[in-house]
Design a protein around this nucleic acid. Structure first.
Length: 807
RNA sequence: GCCGGAGUGACGGAAUUGGUAGACGUGCAGCACUCAAAAUGCUGUGUCCUAUGGGCGUGUGGGUUCGAGUCCCACCUCCGGCACCA
């Protein structure tokens, strides 16, 4: 029996809104639950992949609310950034106009989904009232030396015409558009996330309720290596260079040194040497190639500088090479090369005919090249005969006593490059004065408002640079003429702290009231895509620690529990606007209703896994809801007999399902909560086909509506009201299961002979082992299998199984 | 190369601690209702055989165990992360 989902859904969406069911304030008398989904880019196209995410979040909001929590479910918009700007370049419509229109459309789609958000706290990152605090944050970091401008070789995407953070370069290509990135020497703003490397790493241990995978990815990204850093003298010269190694124990095996082509010492080394011309050619070529091309070469290349270095351990003079397999961006940009224990150095040494000395004894049968395993140290003077750990300790101590080096820790993590040469972002609040140098914009002058422009085309510099009225300003210190910084900030800056602003979204005095943050933070549940496992989540953790250090955040970690959901896939690709395979939910809302869409999104598979959109799925869950509707609105021929075992059985099943649904919601197994409810509905259909008891049916159905409420809230609310259960379903308490009803009085016991199932017998749940064995043995079927055999052993695990081992 | 995850019917998937493999849904087939269809309801649906019974069966091969989708070893395939990171 079909119900009128259009009328019902509109009715309840109005009710939730007008009764302000999901608007909350701080309430010290209630436990809080801060429930956040990663705020979306307002593409204007909410698709079924998004809907999956928001169905989960809404389910949690409604469930926790019924459990008595003061639940905050906020929503906002990641409205700055390249997609909006690129759309503007294409259409000629200002990104703000477009974004604001799309926000309106998406809000409507959220409404139609029945998602409960506290819209009073809505925020958008392109709003000056929001990005003003990005700028404030920048200044706080700047004041503490954590924001700095530096010329460095940076990743440049020639298609997007902007620099990229390390985290935005995937396999040497732009994460957004796939264009190979180039290296450019540019003066850029960095945030010093490396100062927090150890804390970001150590605190991962506290994130017990994060997916292990994400924790591992972050650990990997931060990339801590322990080793030693020491100085190497250039022979016949005053100059020296530092190297970092994780294997100081192999120092006696160093047979050459390698500097990165960009290393600052290179120029003075090659100047006037016999290989100067060849070296200059090599350096120039290395600079021309992108990282992808450099790596694709395969074979290592390099060139001799003509100069030698002195191995501090044995005073041997060793050739210094330049090679692009050494990267300027990691460690010191220079290495001691130990071909005996490093495969890369081995390859380089064999190619250029350099010496190879083994300092770790490989196993007798060793036929490989560089040996990286454990063994006794050899050819290493005072280190001979030590194992690696001892040798490392010993040589590090020696380096320190000689004052040429020290044990140190090296991170793979680099500072966060936040400048972008694009229009649609938050202006960096700095001024460049000829007299005073870089001067921060005074806080009382914030926000530095993004000016209106008509040409958004980036041409290697920010479009803001062409806006004279913006660029030309006066120095806040000397009041002389000065120029504004024209780059804008990476949009990951916006998203690195927005979850604090939700706690106090309208504050014009401070970024947020620490007291409100104290009430709401940390986020109890954060839900989003795994694609943010590194980028956003690492930056958000960094900024949270910073806000903690300046006394604003009550916590050092922003997200207590993280859930990363799988993608929605169609035609073998993630559903996205750029792939052109978007499935909009609207037609399904119209034909089957939001409840059916929500239920399918939950039912489609494990929330952590990717799921394939299936057009037949929503009609399937609608069929289920129609069955629920029919059961809830039909007047059955109730019996006036005494209550009996059939009544107890269905009630008992309802409580088992309640237990299962509760536990499965808690562990994010939403797909099985739906199947459990489907089973219960099937059993209830059988029950009413017999001679149902009115009270029993009423109670079972009441439980079903309570369980259905977070999943298919509209139809559940309507039936709740129609059947007069009282109050508003959304604020009714989540039921608790009755343990005495949950336990089964009888169980189907399996009887095996030699591990094979030979019979099934219904027995009392509290049957003893002896009794179980006796009952099993009495079975005719079992008799047939054990007759004529000797019973060697009986394993009885009442009430589930009895296994006869016969020989 | 290093680290991690996954492989179950035609399909999506279930199986909480080692104890009934395939719940629930989709699809398909048959039946009922109907003039007919749709919708709905009912029944069946891993596979093979000499079929009221039995053999086999959770990527492959081995192992532990009374008993393995689940634990151990080796391998294959796919997915994700890192990757000339010293």
């Amino acid at each position: 029996m079909e119900y009128d989902h259009r009328a019902i859904e509109a009715k309840w969406q109005d009710r939730w809104e007008s009764e302000r069911v999901f608007n909350v304030t701080e309430d010290p008398d209630k436990p809080k639950f801060y429930n956040v989904s990663m705020y979306p880019y307002p593409s204007g196209e909410l698709h079924v992949g998004h809907v999956r995410n928001y169905t989960y979040i809404d389910l949690i909001t409604r469930y926790k609310k019924m459990q008595g929590y003061n639940v905050l479910p906020p929503m906002g918009w990641d409205s700055f950034g390249l997609p909006a700007e690129n759309a503007a370049i294409e259409t000629g419509v200002h990104p703000r106009v477009n974004v604001e229109k799309q926000i309106g459309r998406m809000k409507e789609q959220f409404r139609k989904l029945g998602a409960g958000f506290d819209w009073d706290r809505e925020l958008a990152s392109h709003d000056p009232r929001y990005y003003r605090w990005d700028q404030w944050l920048f200044l706080e970091l700047y004041d503490r030396g954590l924001a700095y401008k530096k010329e460095a070789p940076v990743n440049w995407c020639p298609k997007d015409n902007t620099v990229l953070a390390n985290e935005q370069v995937v396999d040497g290509a732009c994460e957004r558009c796939g264009t190979p990135v180039e290296k450019r020497n540019l003066s850029q703003w960095f945030w010093k996330i490396t100062d927090y490397a150890d804390r970001l790493l150590d605190d991962l241990d506290d994130l017990q309720e994060w997916p292990e995978r994400v924790v591992r990815m972050q650990r990997n990204w931060i990339g801590k290596s322990e080793g030693a850093r020491f100085s190497i003298q250039v022979a016949g010269s005053e100059s020296s260079f530092d190297v970092f190694t994780t294997r100081p124990d192999t120092i006696f095996g160093m047979t050459f040194c390698v500097l990165a082509p960009e290393h600052p010492l290179v120029e003075s080394l090659i100047s006037g040497s016999e290989t100067e011309a060849a070296a200059r050619t090599y350096i120039e070529e290395a600079g021309r190639f992108s990282e992808i091309e450099r790596m694709a070469e395969g074979a290592k290349t390099g060139v001799f500088t003509g100069r030698h270095a002195v191995n501090p351990a044995n005073k041997a003079e060793l050739p210094i090479y330049i090679a692009d397999y050494v990267l300027m961006g990691y460690g010191t940009g220079a290495i001691m090369a130990v071909p005996g224990q490093d495969q890369r150095d081995w390859e380089f040494a064999t190619k250029y005919g350099l010496d190879i000395v083994r300092t770790v004894e490989p196993p007798a049968e060793w036929e490989g090249e560089a040996f990286l395993g454990e063994g006794l140290t050899i050819n290493s003077g005072f280190l001979d005969g030590l194992r690696q750990a001892e040798a490392k300790a010993s040589i590090t101590e020696w380096l320190e006593s000689e004052e040429i080096g020290e044990g140190t820790v090296q991170y793979r993590l680099r500072d966060w490059l936040i400048s972008r040469q694009r229009y649609w972002g938050c202006p960096i609040p700095m001024i460049d004065c000829e007299e005073c140098g870089l001067v921060p914009v005074p806080r009382e002058d914030l926000p530095v408002v993004l000016p209106e422009v008509e040409d958004w085309q980036p041409e290697g510099r920010s479009p803001l640079a062409a806006v004279e009225s913006f660029v030309n300003t006066t120095c806040p210190e000397c009041e002389g003429p000065a120029r504004r910084e024209t780059d804008t900030m990476d949009t990951f800056v916006d998203s690195s702290w927005y979850f604090f602003r939700y706690a106090d979204p309208k504050n014009d005095e401070v970024i947020f009231d620490p007291e409100k943050a104290r009430y709401w933070m940390p986020v109890d549940q954060y839900v989003g895509g795994v694609e943010h496992a590194i980028l956003h989540l690492l930056y958000a953790r960094f900024i949270t620690k910073f806000l903690h250090d300046i006394g604003l955040s009550p916590v050092e970690e922003p997200f207590a529990r993280l859930f990363t959901q799988g993608m929605m896939v169609k035609d073998g690709a993630k559903i996205s606007k750029s792939k052109g395979n978007v499935v909009a939910p609207d037609v399904y809302y119209e034909d089957f209703g939001a409840d059916a869409v929500r239920l399918f999104e939950l039912f489609v598979g494990p929330p952590t896994d990717d799921a394939v959109w299936n057009d037949a799925g929503v009609p399937g869950t609608k069929r289920f809801l129609d069955k629920v509707w029919k059961l809830g609105t039909t007047e059955f021929a109730y019996s006036d007999r005494e209550r009996g075992s059939s009544d107890r059985d269905i009630l008992s099943e309802a409580h088992r399902v309640l237990k299962r649904v509760t536990e499965d919601i808690d562990r994010f197994h939403f797909n099985t909560t739906v199947s459990a409810l489907m089973s219960l509905i099937n059993l209830l259909q059988d029950y009413v086909a017999g001679s149902p008891d009115r009270e029993t049916f009423n109670e079972v159905f009441r439980l079903i509506l309570l369980m259905l409420s977070p999943m298919a809230p509209h139809v559940a609310h309507e039936l709740w009201e129609m059947r007069g259960y009282g109050g508003l379903l959304a604020t009714s308490p989540w039921p608790e299961w009755d343990e005495t009803l949950v336990v089964q009085s009888t169980v189907t016991m399996v009887v095996q002979v030699n591990g094979k199932v030979r019979d099934r017998i219904v027995v009392s749940a509290d049957i003893s082992a002896q009794e179980a064995e006796r009952v099993a043995m009495e079975s005719q079927k079992i008799q047939g299998w054990v007759d004529g055999h000797q019973i060697r052993k009986v394993i009885a695990r009442p009430p589930n199984i009895v296994n006869f081992v016969v020989g």
